[in-house]
Each structure stands twice: as structure tokens, then as C-alpha cells.
Write a protein that binds this DNA or RNA. Structure first.
Length: 569
RNA sequence: GUGCCCGUGGCGCAGUUGGAUAGCGCGUCAGACUCCGACUCUGAAGGUCGCAGGUUCGAAUCCUGUCGGGCAUACCA
């Protein structure tokens, strides 16, 4: 549970405060003007390991030039024995600090002590969070878009767990409603086409054209012949729903398992309908005066709740809309199951919905009508995946049946590459170049990171054969690790807990991709610059410890995003 | 029309509670293996951060306007 970056910053804050007190006590700076500022890690290492902006920020209040303030503070700062070795004023008034041997040593010790839980923290304070993601319609196979949502949701959940949240992963199964009906009708039509001929049966408008529907119909025909053809159309469609939907759900489960995603809960929409929970929810809204009837339908007074337009809850034919079920579903998340935070991962094409729905779910009137007393809803929107084939963008559509499915994709490229590749920043379009991705030996950056891990493993084996074991952190002298490449590597190792916290805070698990890539890069650089075999025993030991620590941190980082860390490649 | 998201070297992207000379990968060019894995490393070229104003010690980052692209605006989910 250690975080040496934060520890160093905390210490630096105190040092600066003490320095100010000493300086103002000595009359070098005005009293009652305690400076505050930002502590940051400078981009350029020649500006030190940490920089403070306090002097610039205090310039106005103190009516002194920033450099003079910095000089006064630094003249009174006491660094001895702590995490900082040197300090100096630079630029417009920055105060720059370099880290001490003790800090570097403590990083390696902390990583060792924390073991497999290095990187974890209690930032989230055990708050109960649900991440709902994928939630693909069970009307067909999952698409590339689901592949992206799956990775993002799963990695986000992992990041939140590492950051100390109590996390549940949930898949909302839309096994009710119009799309499911359309699925049944589509399959029924395919079946009848087999019985009576393609041209004799009209295919439903907006029906599902996918091959999986034809296969389902053919399979049923193979088993039952045309014995079902006499059934009324609606009954036949219902039969296909009963057969096809559970099967599709099972397939999704299998494919997601293959993708290394497991949900704590598969929550069926149909349960909300069957238990009367939707009905009860809508009744509460009506009793609270939040609805009205028009044209035979029941409408939610959505505009009164902060949205841009009203919405239908119950259609004129008596059936409930998706909105109605979704309100009930989220009422269940907050009021019945007590989640303090719910994050829905959705495609950006749902953003119109999220704006309205988010406004509704935070509206006091609606919350009190539903008995929701706590909990906040947020959305993680991800932009579309653009498939590129032969340099051309191909649009994905479940309707036309021309989508490349998640499972197809996994037949062609490794789960590791897939997960790494899709874990990109959610708010930009992702270009997925199929021609590149289908190559097993592609230049995907995941190999770069995994290679670092494998390389360290064989390095440790090789040195082990020479009788060198990885030493304990207390048995090495970290002061021997003073090459720039060594220090840059240790600093990157120290950054993991902070990266996890930031990824959790920003709901951006793609930070971890960048983190492990940078970690691997720094290792490769270290590896090129520093040798072990043939070096002095104590130097060899220190470097071996550094390499082994790197290995473990690479594995932890890759683990967070669901990518394996192979010992050999 | 209205709302949301995105415009950063040839391509793909980091960098947003405002910080120092705007970074990285791919590609291009030039180098490095009798060596703990060359699936690696080193160096170079390449930018008025879409454009125009504004805010201030300081702006890729904040504000306003504008242009370009995407998405959404169903008794679909």
C-alpha cells in the first residue's frame, strides 16, 4: 500500500513550509504569507526530479520577484536525511529538487514488501462501485464495438479495485423488448423461407440479416422439419426467442470468457418485468405526478427534470419502453443494491440517451419518487471503432450481418494484442487496421512490453545458472544504482501506485498501457546501458534486484489490463 | 437547427485542477550485435498545438467566436 511519489511530495510540502517559517522568522520573507503551489515531476530530468511553483505563485502576495522568494526559501530549507538530496532555483522561479539515495532504496523496498499488491491503495476508501459494460443485445454475436467496451470496462474495474474501491462487474441482458421480438420474427421468417421458399415469405422490415439467424432457423428445421410452420406467426416467433436468446447469451458468456472477462452478475431485463418492478417503478413516478398521458401513451415529464424533451414510458399498446426498464434497473442498482457509484460504459451513439438519463437520475424529484437516497450515476462513453480493410473504412452493423464478431477477431489475433490494442483512450475514434491486426507477428506494442518481461525472466535464469540469486532489498546498496538509466527506471517503478490512482480518478485505464510501455522502454534502455555479468558483485546484485523488481511491476501492470506476462516468447 | 465529443510533425497518439525549450510510437535517414535474447538500443530530420481574438508573470490546457470531422436528436435499444 505504499506510494513513494506521494510520500516524497508530502515530505517536500513539509520542508517548504518549515523553510518558509524559518525564512520569515529570520525576516527574509514577509510573515503571514505562507506560500502554496504545485509539486510536479518536470518533463526534462535536467530540471530535477521534483519542482515546486510556490515562489512564482507567492510573488504577487509577497510583492517580491519569484527568484528572490525561491532563493530565500532554499536558503532556509533543511534536506538532510530525507528524500531529497539537492535543491536549486531555476527558470522563472521554479525550485528544483533531486531525490536522495534513501528514496531510491525505499522504492525497491516498498515494491518488495508490498509484493503482489504493489500498486494498490486505499484511495477509493472501499466505496461500492458497479461497472456495467458490454451489455450487448442478445440478438446476435458481439461486435468489435463490444470488444472495445469489454476491455475498457474490465480494465476500468480492475483499476478501481487496485485503487481501493469495492467493485462489481455487471452485464445487463436486454432479453426483453422490441429488439428481442424482432429477433424472433427474423428467425421465424427464415424458418418459413426454408419451408416455403425464399420468395414466398416476406422478411421483416429492419429484421436481423445475420447468418446466425439463418443457421438457427436451419437447425430448428433440421430437427423439427416443417412441423412448426402451422403455428401462428407470433407463437412461432416466441419459440425462436425461447430457443435463440438463451443460446446467444451462453455464447456471449463463452466468448467473453475467452476474452478473459468475467462478470459478477448477468442481470436480465426480463427479471425487472416479470417481478413487477418496472410496473411498480412507473406507478411511483405517476403517483409523484411526474408523468402524464398523451395519445394513449404514458409520458415522463422529463423536461421538468432537466432534460431537453419528454419521453414515453408506456406505449399506447401497453408495453414498457426501454427507458422505463432502465429507470427501474437503475433504481434497483441504487435503492435495492446500495451502490454508491455506478459507471455505465456505453458507445458514444448512446450519448443523447446519457445526457437525458443522467439528468433524470440525478433529479431530486425522481430520486425521491423512487426512494433513491444515495448514489451517483456516471457514464463512460467510448467512440466508435473504425474498421479498416484494404485501407478503407468499413462500417459495422449487426443489422446487415456484415460485422466482424469479437470471436472472429480472437481467431485471428491474440487476446493479449486485442486487449492491449482496444484499451485506448475512450473519447477518440479507434482505427483498427485489420490487415495489420490479423498478423500474429504484428508490430503491436504489446509485444514490446511482453518482451521486456520475457527478457528479464531469461536474464534471471542465466544469472541463476551462474549462482546469482535475486537478493532481498535490504541486502543491496541502492546508492550503487546511480546511472541515469537506472534512476529513470526506479522512478518509473515508483510511479505505479500513483498511475493507478490517476487512472481510477480519470476513469481512464488506457493510462496503464502508456505506463507499462514506458516502463518497458526504460528497462530496455537500462539493459542496453548497464551490464551485470562481469560487474562487481555488489553492483551486479543491485542491478539484478532492479531487473527483478521491474519484472514484477511489468507483470502487475499487464495484469491490470488483462494481458499476460509470458516468461518466454 | 440544437446538443455532446474530437482537431497536436507524413500516419497513429501523449500531454487539460494553466508552468520551464510541446513529448512518444510507427514511418524516413544515419549508426550499434565475438556481448545477460537485435522482437533491442543510439542519433538525426520533421510542429506558427485547426484558425482568430481574450484572460495573466506564463496558454496545447481556461473564456469567446469561427472552420473542419464524428455522433445524437424514435411510442429502437
Amino acid at each position: 500500500m505504499s506510494n513513494l511519489i506521494r510520500d516524497a511530495m508530502r515530505q517536500l510540502d513539509e520542508l517548504l513550509l518549515d523553510a518558509y517559517r524559518a525564512a520569515s522568522g529570520a525576516g527574509a520573507l514577509p510573515p503571514d504569507a505562507e506560500p502554496s503551489g504545485v509539486l510536479e515531476i518536470p518533463r526534462d530530468p535536467s530540471n530535477g526530479d521534483f519542482a515546486a511553483t510556490h515562489a512564482m505563485a507567492a510573488a504577487r502576495a509577497m510583492r517580491r520577484p519569484p527568484r528572490e522568494i525561491a532563493g530565500a526559501l532554499l536558503a532556509h530549507i533543511k534536506l538532510d536525511g530525507g528524500y531529497f538530496a539537492t535543491c536549486g532555483a531555476a527558470g522563472a522561479g521554479f525550485m528544483n529538487f533531486t531525490l536522495s539515495d534513501k528514496w531510491y532504496s525505499d522504492v525497491l523496498r516498498a515494491a518488495e514488501e508490498d509484493g503482489a499488491s504493489y500498486g494498490r491503495s486505499d484511495y477509493g476508501g472501499g466505496k461500492r462501485v458497479m461497472v456495467e459494460f458490454v451489455s450487448a443485445n442478445p440478438t446476435g454475436p458481439m461486435t468489435i464495438g463490444n470488444a472495445r467496451g469489454g476491455v475498457l470496462g474490465d480494465a476500468l474495474a480492475s483499476v478501481l479495485e487496485m485503487a481501493g474501491y469495492d467493485v462489481r462487474r455487471e452485464f445487463y441482458v436486454n432479453d426483453a423488448g422490441n429488439q428481442v421480438e424482432l429477433f424472433g420474427k427474423s428467425a421465424a421468417a427464415r424458418y418459413m423461407q426454408i419451408c416455403l421458399g425464399e420468395d414466398a415469405v416476406r422478411f421483416p422490415e429492419n429484421g436481423y440479416h445475420g447468418d446466425d439467424i439463418r443457421e438457427l432457423a436451419a437447425e430448428v428445421y433440421g430437427r423439427e422439419g416443417d412441423s412448426l410452420a402451422a403455428l401462428p406467426e407470433s407463437e412461432l416467433a416466441r419459440r425462436f426467442v425461447e430457443i435463440g436468446i438463451p443460446r446467444n447469451i451462453e455464447l456471449m458468456r463463452e466468448h467473453l470468457e475467452r476474452y478473459r472477462i468475467r462478470f459478477d452478475e448477468w442481470f436480465p431485463e426480463s427479471r425487472l418485468h416479470a417481478s413487477g418492478y418496472v410496473e411498480d417503478t412507473i406507478r411511483r413516478l405517476t403517483e409523484s405526478g411526474l408523468t402524464y398521458e398523451s395519445d394513449g401513451a404514458l409520458w415522463l415529464k422529463n423536461t421538468a427534470l432537466g432534460a431537453d424533451k419528454d419521453e414515453v414510458l408506456r406505449r399506447s399498446d401497453g408495453s414498457y419502453t426501454y427507458q422505463a426498464a432502465d429507470i427501474a434497473y437503475h433504481r434497483d442498482k441504487f435503492a435495492e443494491r446500495g451502490f454508491e457509484r455506478v459507471i455505465d460504459v456505453l458507445g458514444a451513439d448512446h450519448h443523447g440517451h446519457t445526457v437525458r438519463f443522467g439528468a433524470m437520475m440525478s433529479a431530486p424529484a425522481l430520486r425521491s419518487a423512487l426512494g433513491v437516497t444515495q448514489g451517483e450515476l456516471e457514464f463512460l462513453l467510448m467512440q466508435m471503432v473504425l474498421l479498416k480493410r484494404d485501407g478503407e473504412v468499413v462500417k459495422v452493423s449487426k443489422r446487415t450481418g456484415k460485422a466482424l464478431t469479437l470471436n472472429d477477431l480472437l481467431d485471428e489475433i491474440s487476446v493479449d494484442a486485442c486487449r492491449f490494442f482496444f484499451n485506448a483512450k475512450p473519447d477518440t475514434h479507434l482505427e483498427f487496421d485489420l490487415d495489420l491486426a490479423v498478423r500474429q507477428d504484428s508490430e503491436n506494442p504489446v509485444y514490446y512490453v511482453q518482451y521486456a518481461h520475457a527478457r528479464i525472466c531469461s536474464l534471471i535464469d542465466a544469472l541463476g545458472a551462474d549462482g546469482h540469486c535475486v537478493p532481498a532489498a535490504r541486502d543491496i546498496d541502492a546508492a550503487l544504482l546511480r546511472e541515469p538509466s537506472e534512476r529513470e527506471l526506479i522512478k518509473q517503478i515508483a510511479l505505479l501506485p500513483e498511475e493507478i490512482v490517476q487512472a481510477a480518478r480519470d476513469r481512464d485505464p488506457s493510462r496503464i498501457n502508456r505506463y507499462v510501455t514506458e516502463l518497458a522502454a526504460r528497462f530496455h534502455k537500462f539493459y542496453g546501458a548497464c551490464r551485470m555479468r562481469g560487474e562487481r558483485e555488489d553492483v551486479l546484485k543491485a542491478r539484478l534486484k532492479l531487473a527483478d523488481t521491474t519484472r514484477r511491476v511489468v507483470a502487475i501492470g499487464l495484469g491490470v489490463i488483462g494481458v499476460t506476462a509470458p516468461e518466454r516468447m
